[in-house]
């Protein structure tokens, strides 16, 4: 994947975090929106799943950028990329499981 694609996703996920984060806040605090979203478990879960994915991508990509700038080495850059991807996927699986548990789906 080209660096521009990774960075484009970085910017897109920033926007997704704002939108889904706002929905999450409103769902938990605004009675009208709360009724609409929280009443539908799958809608709430969908929003949270997207929010979590965007948040993790944005955060881990940020960490990757910092690390590859600190240690400019081709092997290290590749290693960091794969390690961050692996940690990100694992964190997402764990996070999603926690979400399912919190919503009483498992």
């Amino acid at each position: 994947m080209r660096e521009s694609t990774k960075m484009l996703l970085h910017y897109v996920t920033a926007l997704i975090i704002i939108v889904t984060g706002l929905i999450h806040l409103l769902a938990n605090n605004d009675p009208n929106v709360g009724k609409l979203i929280s009443s539908n478990t799958y809608l709430y879960l969908g929003n949270m799943a997207i929010f979590l994915a965007a948040l993790l991508y944005h955060a881990f990509n940020g960490i990757r950028v910092i690390l590859i700038e600190l240690v400019p080495d081709k092997c290290w850059t590749k290693l960091i990329g794969w390690a961050i991807l692996l940690i990100g996927v694992v964190t997402y699986i764990v996070g999603f499981q926690v979400l399912l548990m919190a919503l009483g789906l498992i």
């Binding site: 660096e3 590859i68 700038e69 850059t77």
Partner: peptide, 9 residues
């Protein structure tokens, strides 16, 4: 320029 150490840094 669109590389790990290119313009995105």
């Amino acid at each position: 320029v669109d590389s790990d150490h290119g313009c995105w840094r």
